[in-house]
């Protein structure tokens, strides 16, 4: 086990290096520069722009810039944002709580919907409930979040005037009022993301349960005279959830990475909107940091998923 872990961690290092190199090169070769907004402004002489480029080290060759980035990254210095001139790690840490709250809650909501619906549908395949659940799940993951997001805004904000559609991280209220305002502004994005995720989870849960439900040990459990409830929860669900747990673990980087489209629509100050803003402003250090952190999370959670798998299913060994 320990040697497996060590081996996987050692393999992760070259792959992360490779990822960072590719990201950096692609970003460096992509068109646009962080000072494009100054280009049409006659008040900023070209020399000033050139001097700024030079002082931010943008005129050096790509490899020199990459090595400089890598060495400072190793020492924990993530660089500073060209757009806001503050350290990238501060900028990211400011965004993490909001993203964790919104995307995390929506994942929990998705599981709360998907687990009971998926299991119940699988135990009664092709029943009316199953048909309806299946249809809704299809509809749910066929509708992109930008569409449902706009639809929610038009219905609940513009037409009904129930919820605000601009998310504010500073709510000027305290006590219960704060919780109420938070709930009001978060409900739409959480529902949009949660329902979308729930739709695909439901289908996974259903098919995983269906696979297990036909196995012999389930028949045995029933033959022993266990109640249907006990059979479903203890014997079927526990085994059926192994692939689902992996799926959720693989989904975790997205919880940190934020939901780019939904965050943009509802103006949620999360990691996703930080990434979009940075891309639009050609703010390379921020793009690099966010994408690289994302890559690290993907590698780490892949490892965790593999380890979880072995723990949940003792038939798999790591030796």
């Amino acid at each position: 086990m320990a040697s497996y872990l060590l081996r996987r961690l050692l393999i992760a290092i070259p792959s992360l290096l490779g990822i960072s190199l590719i990201l950096f090169t692609v970003l460096a070769m992509a068109p646009g520069d962080p000072f494009s907004e100054m280009a049409t402004n006659p008040n900023v002489p070209p020399e000033v722009r050139e001097a700024l480029r030079a002082s931010f080290g943008l005129n050096d060759p790509i490899m020199v810039r990459y090595l400089r980035w890598l060495t400072s990254m190793m020492q924990g210095d993530w660089g500073f944002s060209f757009a806001s001139r503050i350290n990238v790690d501060t900028l990211i840490l400011q965004r993490v709580p909001t993203t964790l709250f919104v995307v995390g809650t929506s994942q929990i909501l998705a599981l709360l919907i998907a687990l009971p619906v998926g299991i119940y549908a699988a135990t009664r395949p092709y029943s009316v409930f199953d048909q309806i659940a299946n249809t809704l799940a299809f509809v749910g993951f066929s509708l992109p979040t930008f569409f449902t997001g706009l639809l929610f805004i038009l219905v609940f904000s513009v037409a009904l005037d129930w919820f605000p559609f601009v998310y504010r991280s500073d709510i000027a209220a305290t006590g219960w009022r704060w919780y109420w305002e938070m709930f009001r502004q978060a409900i739409m994005p959480i529902m949009v993301l949660g329902l979308f995720q729930a739709a695909s989870y439901t289908r996974y849960v259903r098919s995983a349960v269906l696979d297990v439900i036909r196995l012999d040990y389930v028949t045995t459990a029933r033959a022993k005279g266990l109640s249907e409830r006990k059979v479903t929860l203890r014997h079927i669900t526990r085994n059926a959830l192994i692939p689902v747990v992996t799926l959720v673990a693989l989904q975790m980087p997205a919880v940190f990475g934020g939901a780019i489209v939904t965050e943009q629509i509802f103006r949620i100050p999360g990691i996703g909107s930080l990434l979009i803003d940075a891309i639009l402003a050609n703010d390379t250090p921020v793009i690099m940091a966010v994408t690289f952190v994302f890559a690290c999370l993907v590698v780490i959670f892949n490892l965790i998923a593999d380890l979880l798998y072995g723990w949940l299913d003792p038939r798999i060994s790591f030796s």
Partner: peptide, 10 residues
């Protein structure tokens, strides 16, 4: 009062 770059200023 408070500022979160790229988000809100009060």
């Amino acid at each position: 009062v408070d500022f979160k770059p790229g988000d809100i200023l009060t």
